[in-house]
Each structure stands twice: as C-alpha cells, then as structure tokens.
C-alpha cells in the first residue's frame, strides 16, 4: 500500500533521511520509534507530501505531493505537538469535515466518546484547550471519517487512562482497515498497539521487525497490588493510573488497558523493591486476594 523508495532529505548540509526504503502493507500497524533527530517526523512529512525530497513515496501508486487531495482524503493525522490554532474548535471541525467531505457529527461523536464535552468547548479557541483536550479533538478529527492510513505522532501521550482505553478501542475497531503508523520515542508506549516495529536512527531504518499480535486493544486487566509498605511517590504514580487503595497505601486496585500493560510493567519495574504481591488478570471481574 505504501512504498518508500530510497527516500532522502537534506536540510542545508544535514542529511535527515538517508535512503529509506520501506513497504507498508494493508493491516500493518507500525510503531515508528527512534530518538530525537532520528528522522521520524521528516519521514511522516514526506509521506504527507509536505516535504520535497529525493527518492519516491507512493500510497497505492499515487504521489502524495502531486495528488494530495486524493491521497490525503484517505489519511487521518494526529501530530505530536498540537498546532497553535486560534480558531474555535467548532470552526476546525467544520473546516476539516468540509475539506474531507465527512460528517462533522462523526468527528464530534469520537471527541465525545473520548470524554470531551464538545458543546462546552465548541466556541473556545483551540489553542486555549489543555493538552489532553487538544489531543482528543485532533483524534476526533482523524478518526471521525473514513481513512485507510492513520498517522499518529505520540497520540496517547496526553490522554488520561479512561480516554486511552476508549482510544485503543477505537483503534482496535480499525485494525484491519489499511495502515496505522504510530511514532514514539519509546517502544513501551506503543508496543501493544502494533504488529510491526521500525526503528530509525540518524535518518536510516536500523530495525524492521514483526511483533506478536495477540493483544486485544479493547481489553482491560484487573490488577491488584500489595506493597511491603506505603510509599508516597509510588502512591502518586498509581493515582495517575487511577488506582485506589482501601488501606492507606498498602493494597491497590485498578484497571490497566490491555495495550498499556507493557507501559504499566515498566512503571512497576521502578518500584520492584516495594512490591510484595502482584496479580493481573484479563477481564474486569473481581479477583481473589493477593497472598
């Protein structure tokens, strides 16, 4: 579906992309990872037809630069840094729906599903929204229309656990539709969302690998955690994961989104010395006490 053939991009003397050749097929959910300056954003901008470059980029045989309205009509894009748009959210939705020939109600529907009160923010300038609200609005615009290619730059970074769960569920419903390209600095942030990992470094692809594809994106895991003693920093972190404690910080309960399990484990690894017991089980039913 998408081919990059020897794509190179140079800014003044700095070679940011260095002969990237890749093929992405229908059903590929790709994590594009790499450190700052690896070339992820530049590659995405070439894919969106925003940069002139050497080599060739094709989406179903079409050039995204020369046939941008046809190609971009099938692309949903969520940038890492929300644009500082002064226009009200309602105007953004109406403009995006207009040029995408989509129903604005669908975009609003996704925003509301993610927990955004559209009526309350409709007249507010987009730039005045909080980071999470901006992210939800942009995801609404990207997912609230028919697309074959979803390009998302750190899409869930600003979302709360509940919104992440809904977001993963929405992505799960699109798993078999076209291609998803999700960029991140860290693989653990996106690992469970994808079935292929492409790592970039200094403008080159240094790893292109398939990963296990068994995680149900809409699943949730009930988790029970026992600490050997209460700890303030750990309590704060668990609070951010919306965990609750019935006994002042020794036992904790909560739900972890299926695709977030690796991220959760990584977080726990920082406090391994405090963990007296841990139980995780798929599903939301009650579980037996952790011994």
């Amino acid at each position: 579906m998408i081919t990059f053939t020897d794509v190179a991009k140079t800014f003044r003397r700095a070679r940011v992309l260095d002969g990237v050749t890749l093929t992405l097929d229908h059903g590929d959910r790709v994590a594009l990872v790499g450190s700052n300056g690896a070339g992820k954003t530049t590659l995405i901008r070439c894919l969106l037809g925003e940069y002139v470059h050497d080599g060739r980029v094709r989406i179903d045989g079409r050039d995204p630069r020369a046939e941008r309205t046809t190609v971009l009509g099938r692309v949903g894009f969520v940038p890492q840094i929300p644009p500082p748009l002064k226009m009200p959210v309602g105007e953004l939705v109406s403009f995006a729906a207009g040029v995408c020939r989509s129903d604005p109600a669908r975009m609003v529907g996704v925003m509301e599903e993610l927990g955004l009160d559209y009526r309350a923010i409709r007249r507010l300038p987009f730039v005045k929204l909080s980071g999470g609200m901006k992210q939800k609005a942009l995801i609404g615009v990207a997912l609230g229309r028919d697309t074959d290619l979803l390009i998302m730059d750190e899409p869930a970074a600003n979302l709360d656990p509940e919104a992440r769960h809904i977001f993963f569920r929405l992505l799960g419903s699109r798993v078999h539709r076209g291609v998803m390209l999700i960029t991140s600095h860290r693989l653990d942030e996106v690992a469970a969302l994808v079935n292929r990992v492409i790592e970039m470094d200094t403008g080159k692809v240094v790893l292109d690998d398939r990963v296990a594809d068994d995680v149900d994106m809409a699943s949730r895991m009930r988790c029970r955690l026992r600490l050997i003693r209460p700890e303030e920093a750990f309590a704060r972190t668990l609070g951010e994961w919306r965990f609750t404690t019935p006994d002042h910080g020794t036992t904790w309960h909560g739900l972890v989104n299926g695709p977030d399990r690796l991220r959760f484990m990584c977080m726990l690894s920082r406090y391994t010395g405090l963990i007296g017991g841990l139980e995780m089980a798929e599903g939301t039913e009650e579980m037996a006490d952790v011994r």
């Binding site: 969106l48 046809t70 971009l72 009509g73 940038p79 929300p82 644009p83 040029v99 995408c100 942009l138």
Partner: peptide
C-alpha cells in the same frame, strides 16, 4: 513557523 501548516496542510486541501 508555529507549525500550523504541518497540521492544516495534512488535510485534503489543494495547495
């Protein structure tokens, strides 16, 4: 410079 083009020109609007 502010990055508005990156997002707005990723929408299917002709240049």
């Amino acid at each position: 410079e502010a990055g508005v083009f990156e997002y707005m020109l990723a929408l299917p609007v002709g240049l």
